[in-house]
Simulated scan of single mutants.
Amino acid sequence: MEELYRTIEKKIKDAGYPRAISGEAVYGDICDQIEGKENGSYVLLSKFEDDIIFEYHITVMDEEFNLGVLTMRTPEGVFETDFDEE
């Protein structure tokens, strides 16, 4: 899991996100957001911090999920990363 967390952190930082970020916290937030959701595609908003909104574009499947695009709206600007791109 540590490698997954580092990958999440790297993708977010590479998008220009200016704040400290925890891949584990993002992963946990996603898991909380999709709990109980049926299979399908969703756009989910999360107030990640007091002044930050994360917008997740997620496909939920039986035993897993795919995070496509993550948009981070902050006072410093809007940052976006596509997790489907290498």
Rank of each mutant, 00 (worst) to 15 (best):
L45N: 11
E86F: 06
E9G: 02
E76S: 12
Y27S: 15
K13Q: 07
R19G: 01
E24Y: 15
P75I: 07
I8D: 04
P18D: 03
D84P: 00
E3V: 03
G40S: 11
E3W: 04
T71Y: 06
T71H: 06
I52K: 02
D62E: 14
K10A: 13
Q33N: 10
E64L: 14
D82H: 06
P75K: 04
I30P: 15
D50P: 03
D82E: 10
P75T: 06
E49C: 08
T59V: 08
D32R: 09
V78P: 08
V26Y: 09
S41T: 12
D29F: 07
V69K: 11
E85G: 01
D62R: 13
V26F: 10
G16Y: 03
V43R: 09
E9C: 01
K10W: 00
E3Q: 13
G28Q: 13
E85L: 13
S41A: 12
L4V: 04
G77V: 05
E49K: 14
V43H: 07
I53N: 11
L4A: 15
E64D: 15
I21L: 05
F83E: 01
G23H: 03
T81Y: 06
G16Q: 04
R19V: 00
I8A: 04
R73V: 12
E35T: 07
F54Q: 05
I30C: 15
M1W: 09
T71L: 06
M1F: 13
K11L: 01
E2C: 03
Y17L: 00
V43W: 03
K47M: 04
E49N: 11
G68R: 13
Y17T: 00
D32T: 09
G36S: 09
F79S: 01
D50R: 04
M61L: 11
E49L: 11
P75D: 11
I12C: 05
E35P: 00
E35R: 08
K10L: 10
D62F: 12
V78N: 12
F65P: 15
E80Y: 02
Y56S: 12
A20C: 02
E2Y: 07
K47G: 03
F65M: 12
E49H: 10
E35F: 10
T74D: 04
N39M: 08
Y56L: 14
D14I: 00
L4S: 14
